[in-house]
Nucleic acid binder design. Structure first.
Lengths: 173, 173
DNA sequence: TGCCATCGTTCCGTAAACGGAACGATGGCC
DNA sequence: GGCCATCGTTCCGTTTACGGAACGATGGCA
């Protein structure tokens, strides 16, 4: 009965975490959000299947975007962990925006994507070495890399710090 | 009766757009998602207040993240339009990731934030001029800018193209 | 110690989201 | 023309998420 869909199962704990971080009681948050305490209690416990309406109210009361409550799929490779943040459907292409984390000193390769697909990385922390396997490039904090992803490519954290970066993958129509 | 909360009002049209882009009929998507046609019909029309369960099923059948269906708040300034993509609660700071768009030739200023707040912009398209009002800097596609946001600062699209960029705002604890 | 406010959970009647079935409309196909 | 599959909407009974109220537990404070 408590079996919620995979991607939604973490909403409850996340709400509870955000709430306690802010030092709010369940009653207080319920009051601010304008939802019943029973609703919020069940939401946090994972015993309810909340409505979009409820989620929106709670997110607003927590001061976060609804997006912050629902987790995107997490891709766990050998070294790289990527969280899908957002999908943009533009006119001529689809964009997927990931947050990428690579532990220091580790690396991972990726098989080619479809022709025309490009990847764009912005480094926030650490030293990222990425690109086609035959011609990778490096970038530190604030740096930017892009490469064609229709050939085998890889990612590596070459410095002593974990790499934090955003990765934008562009799929042309 | 059809009054759904602001941030949720666009879910229906977005689902319909994603579905028709894929050439799927309503019946077919409902079948693939394992939801009733009545449910999907009402969801797209905005006459229902869908459950997290339902949203997850539909997103999965469309092959997109749940994140792609729910819009973050949109900040509409004089020139800059920003969509909040994600909020990260790290140990020592909170990060807000925005997508920023500035029409060519326009500019906007922003009042100071709290001390210690920094902003980090990565330009995808156009020429961005941004930073403290007394010392702005410029960056083109692939470029990166960062500045302290605890002083008056501004953003401008100085080239002939609209600026598309990601803006990361870091709030220390 | 008693008193009281607030905590989070549980109970319960109501409102509504759910899936299945029936509906008329539309578009091949023979 | 008739036939039939599929379209998206609507109807309807069942399930369940909803908010309000009641609950016992906990923690100041006089």
């Amino acid at each position: 009965m408590e079996a919620l869909p995979d991607g939604a199962a973490h909403v409850g704990p996340r709400v509870r975490a955000l709430r306690t971080e802010r030092g709010l009681s369940l009653s207080e948050l319920a009051r601010r959000a304008g939802v019943g305490k029973a609703t919020l209690s069940g939401l946090e416990a994972g015993t309810r299947n909340p409505t979009l309406d409820t989620l929106h109210s709670v997110a607003a009361a927590l001061g976060v975007a609804l997006t912050a409550l629902v987790e995107g799929p997490r891709i766990h490779g050998a070294a790289v962990r990527m969280d899908l943040l957002r999908v943009f459907e533009e006119g001529a292409a689809t964009y997927e925006l990931y947050r990428m984390r690579i532990p220091a000193g580790t690396a991972q390769t990726s098989p080619p994507h479809h022709p025309g697909v490009t990847e764009h990385a912005t480094v926030f922390a650490g030293e990222l070495r990425a690109g086609p396997l035959h011609d990778p490039a490096s970038a530190g904090p604030g740096g930017y890399l892009e490469w064609a992803a229709d050939a085998p490519h890889g990612y590596a954290a070459v410095g002593e710090q974990d790499v934090h970066a955003s990765l934008l993958i562009r799929y042309p129509r």
